[in-house]
Design a protein around this nucleic acid. Structure first.
Lengths: 241, 241
DNA sequence: ACACAAGCACTTGGCGACAAGTTAAGATGA
DNA sequence: TCATCTTAACTTGTCGCCAAGTGCTTGTGT
């Protein structure tokens, strides 16, 4: 197989990444300065700079003006079983993680055909978005959005801002068992708001998992769920069994 | 919830992305020039430029020197059921896609503890990496690596470079049914080689699915599988049933 | 001998001028 | 009238200089 020479910037990224995974550069250690790297690779400083900026945006390194660039401390990847059948809270607690949740938003959303259809809401109905931020070991790692219709949950406007676990809320209202329809996974990048909430850089991919939560008795859709996971904090177990 | 003002560059990205998803900018259409955008957002051209460069690296837009920047043509996302139980080939053919495969590599790999352990190989055994590039509608969309031990498949060195479907190869050797152990999903970025093979930019995330393929009769591990999917070309169905 | 401040050599960050490429309009000549 | 060349006004791309920040070294005064 023959490959034409790729642009040098990408090759520099490859080289540094290789040094990171092979632990030639250790966590917390200072990287060579831009000028040193420019001399090493025989390229203008800008080329090195672009490569380093990309690594920074991907979240591998950070920079301090006047000091240098440093490899971030190692952060363990949490292994998570990706299935809609149990609640996020239960999954994490079972796995023994220190999980905290903050309710960050509860607001009426404007009409959106696809979304309203998912929760069996008509154009005149009200649909609320309830957002929680999930922390593990006090690090934000996921944003969890639930979309519910006011028709189904009349008190949602006042209850919404206090909810941390939707499953808990449903149980209190008498719902006993839950299941889910199709679960879809895709990849996106954080908006500026999401970057701040998750305290991550703009090029850290987010894994989006969307599904509907269904009451096992009535078979009615209770909510549409959308979870944004920081992809650098997880390894997902998608074993089918 | 109060958010401190994020850096302007990120906000510009948000704004342009919003215009893309709301179809204010149409596919193939020319974006405003860097100077126009700089005037619009009241920022130096460099800031706009950085924002646009990021969008380009994520694969949403492309640029032509002297002409301008353009929104890419729409590319449909293929929906794929992510499970290890059926072969990649079968999955795609079932779904009715025009799938082509090219064998791109077959080589003996150097010792790697984790990997060798996966295929039950000792330090003295030979393990081969067989790589195929998957095309759908003549677009490269995934790189599929299979790791097999020579101990298990003595003729792999000569057969390897011709194999397009490992399952087919195993069936020819008398293996009848396959299953898989744990499947793990994570996110990575393409190396320069992978960028060329998949003809994608450096910031297009790749979905990595790793698992072991097991002979259903003997329960022996046949291969360790690692598939790199272009995340922008797929929506993954991870429904459990 | 010690405290402190100035300076220097290094780091990363940002901006502006210019280079390179494209297009279209207009001048020029047959 | 038409073909062709020149020019100018746009586009994106690149490079280098200087600003800003850090910390060590050195010199000076008490």
């Amino acid at each position: 197989m023959i490959l034409i020479s790729a642009d040098i910037e990408t090759q520099i990224i490859d080289d540094i990444m290789q040094q990171i995974v092979s632990k030639t550069i250790e966590h917390g250690e200072k990287l060579p300065s831009e000028n040193e790297l420019a001399k090493k690779y025989k390229v203008p400083r800008m080329t090195v700079r672009n490569a380093l900026t990309k690594l920074e945006e991907r979240g591998y390194i950070y920079s301090l003006q006047g000091k240098g660039r440093y490899l971030k401390e190692e952060s363990t990847q949490i292994q998570l079983h990706l299935t809609g059948k149990t609640s996020f809270t239960d999954k994490m607690k079972e796995a023994g993680y220190d999980l905290k949740t903050h309710n960050i938003i509860c607001e009426k959303i404007s009409f959106n055909e696809q979304l309203f259809q998912n929760v069996n809401a008509g154009k005149e109905d009200n649909v609320y978005k309830i957002g929680r931020l999930r922390y593990i070991n006090d690090e934000p790692i996921a944003i969890h959005y639930s979309y519910v219709s006011e028709k189904m949950f009349p008190k949602i406007e006042v209850d919404g801002p206090k909810i941390e676990s939707m499953f808990g809320y449903y149980r209190k209202l008498g719902y006993k068992g839950f299941t889910s329809k199709k679960s879809l996974l895709s990849i996106t990048f954080p908006t500026s708001d999401e970057q701040q909430l998750l305290s991550c850089k703009s090029m850290v991919p987010l894994i989006v998992v969307e599904s509907d939560c269904i009451d096992i008795n009535t078979n009615k859709v209770l909510e549409h769920t959308k979870i944004l996971y920081r992809s650098d904090k997880f390894k997902y177990d998608i074993t089918m069994d």
